[in-house]
Design a protein around this nucleic acid. Structure first.
Length: 280
DNA sequence: GTTAACGCCTGAAGGC
DNA sequence: TGCCTTCAGGCGTTAA
């Protein structure tokens, strides 16, 4: 499932593969995933050049000519693939972009969760909801002051807070479990009782974990692969996610799995303990 | 205003 | 073997 590091890996791959490519025509095979009638979508994209591909949080932004941006969210299993024209398309190919150089860019999504929106550049932030997204998980954007203020203002469980894209951009289920384990914080810890020292540690771990995952080209869980069809390498470094019943890599206690905010959550019951005050 | 729960989807895995 | 149920989950929408 793509989280920020996977989306960034896809962005880099797509930039090399289709940056500068011109779109001849578009076939929409699953109209529900786009924000307008399929024929309108196709006619607006015909003749456009992909000038650049940006990313904000987990959203891909295809910058096109004529001041248009194609906003794409992969959700659970969305993938892009580039093949020669006429190649046999796999099941669940939702959108086909016919390029003028004899290639096709496919958007595939087995779970059909992904979304695409074609919007004017000056309306991108508003119409696609990007204006509600929190800071990127980097040292420059995610400050201690901001994180502390948001955490202490909230009364939620820590994992629910971290999954909320309006608080911090880019964290999904896997990296939440990872950074909470690294920070020795319980996923159900109330956010308003996280101490300064814990916030500093949490912030550091978010920033370093995401950076390391980007460097390792993302995590492979289930069927994720990047735009080149390569599997990410980062799954070999997972410490918490998916390790239910296995010994904690710090204290050897068996890892447990619970549900937090409707998500499967793996943690160490010894290292990660809920506390109700601000002491460390 | 804030937080929790639901629905969208398909395929894999488990139970019988 | 084959059918049925459960589970996986990001996020927009709806409810509390």
């Amino acid at each position: 499932m793509p989280e920020l590091p996977e989306v960034e890996t896809v962005r880099q791959g797509l930039t090399k593969l289709v940056g500068g490519a011109k779109i001849d025509s578009v076939e929409v095979l699953y109209p529900k995933m786009i924000n307008m009638p399929a024929d309108e979508f196709a006619s607006q994209l015909a003749g456009q050049t992909i000038e650049r591909i940006d990313r904000r949080g987990k959203y891909l932004l295809f910058r096109l000519t004529n001041d248009l941006t194609l906003v794409s969210h992969l959700r659970m299993e969305g993938k892009y693939e580039v093949e020669p024209a006429g190649s046999t398309r796999p099941k669940h190919t939702n959108v086909v972009f016919h390029l003028d150089d004899g290639r096709e860019l496919w958007y595939k999504d087995t779970r059909m969760f992904g979304k695409m929106a074609l919007v004017a550049n000056d309306a991108v932030m508003e119409l696609s909801g990007l204006n509600k997204i929190g800071p990127e998980p980097t040292a420059d954007d995610l400050s201690f002051t901001y994180l502390k203020e948001r955490l202490h203002k909230s009364h939620r469980k820590l994992k629910a807070f971290l999954l909320d894209q309006s608080q911090v951009a880019g964290l999904g289920n896997i990296y939440c479990d990872e950074v909470l384990w690294m920070s020795k914080l319980h996923p159900e810890q109330p956010t308003n009782y996280v101490s300064d020292a814990e916030i500093e540690k949490l912030r550091d771990n978010i920033i370093t974990e995401i950076a390391a995952a980007i460097k390792g080209h993302g995590t492979t869980v289930h069927s994720y692969s990047n735009a080149f069809g390569e599997a990410g390498q980062f799954q070999n470094q997972l410490q918490a996610y998916g390790r239910k019943g296995e010994p904690c890599r710090r204290c050897k206690t068996l890892m447990e799995k619970i549900k937090v905010a409707q998500r499967g959550t793996t943690f160490c019951p010894k290292c990660q303990v809920v506390h109700g005050d601000l002491s460390d």
